[in-house]
Amino acid sequence: MIDGCRILLLDDEPLILMDLEFAAEDRECRPLTATNVREALAHIEAQGSVSCAVLDVTLRDGETCMPVARELERRDIPYILHSGDLNRQEGTLAALNARLIAKPACSSKVVDAALALAEPAATRQAS
C-alpha cells in the first residue's frame, strides 16, 4: 500500500461514488470525491499529492472527464476510466488512451486497479 494514499474519485452517480469511496477506505486510502470537473480539479489543486484517480467518462450537463484527465497527465498522476457509456464516448476513450473498466464493476476491483497503477508511479517519484 502507498503511504498517505489519496485517490481522486470522479463520478456523477452518488451510489457508485459512495461504493468507490468505501472501497478506497477499506484499502486505507483517503478518498477525494467529486461529481463534476470543477470539484475534481479543485481537489487536485488543493491536495497537491493525489496518488491516483478513477474517472467516470460521461458526467452531468454534457461534461466529460477530459479536463481532469489532462491535468492528471500533466502532473504524471495515473488514472483509470470507469464508464458504462462506451458506445457514445469512443472518441474520448481513444483520445485518453487509459485503462478502462466498464460499468458495472466491483468497486474494490476498480480501486485496486487504480492503486496498482499508483504503486509504480510512487516508486518512480521516490527515486
Rank of each mutant, 00 (worst) to 15 (best):
Q125K: 08
N87H: 04
L100A: 12
L81D: 02
I44N: 05
D11V: 02
C106S: 14
L32T: 02
P31K: 05
G62I: 01
R88G: 12
R30N: 13
T58N: 14
N36V: 06
I101E: 06
I101L: 05
C5M: 11
I44D: 01
L86R: 13
M18V: 00
L32W: 12
E90M: 03
I16W: 05
V110E: 10
A24L: 12
A118K: 04
K109G: 14
Q89Y: 06
E39C: 06
L59Y: 07
R30T: 15
V37Y: 12
L32F: 15
M1K: 00
V54K: 03
S108H: 05
E73V: 04
A113L: 04
I7N: 02
V54F: 13
F22V: 08
P120S: 08
E21Q: 08
A98G: 11
E25C: 04
P104K: 06
S127Y: 03
L8H: 04
H43A: 09
L96I: 00
E45C: 00
L100T: 11
L10S: 07
N97M: 03
E90Y: 01
R124L: 15
I44P: 03
V50H: 01
I44K: 05
I2R: 05
A98C: 15
E28T: 07
A126Q: 13
R27V: 06
D11F: 02
A23C: 01
I101R: 07
I101W: 11
A95S: 02
G62H: 03
A118C: 09
D112V: 02
E13A: 10
P78D: 10
A42K: 05
L8N: 03
D12I: 14
G62Q: 09
A69P: 00
P67V: 06
R70W: 11
S107V: 00
V111C: 06
A118I: 05
A69H: 02
E21S: 15
A69R: 06
E71S: 15
I101F: 00
L86V: 11
S127L: 14
A122P: 04
A94Q: 14
L10P: 14
C52A: 15
R6Y: 08
G4K: 13
G91D: 10
N87L: 01
R88T: 13
A122Q: 10
R124G: 14
S51P: 05
A122Y: 07
A114D: 08
D61Q: 10
L81E: 03
G4C: 07
A98F: 14
L32M: 15
A121Q: 07
T92D: 04
L41H: 12
H82Y: 15
D26T: 02
E71K: 08
S127H: 10
A42M: 06
L100V: 12
D19G: 00
A122W: 11
D56N: 09
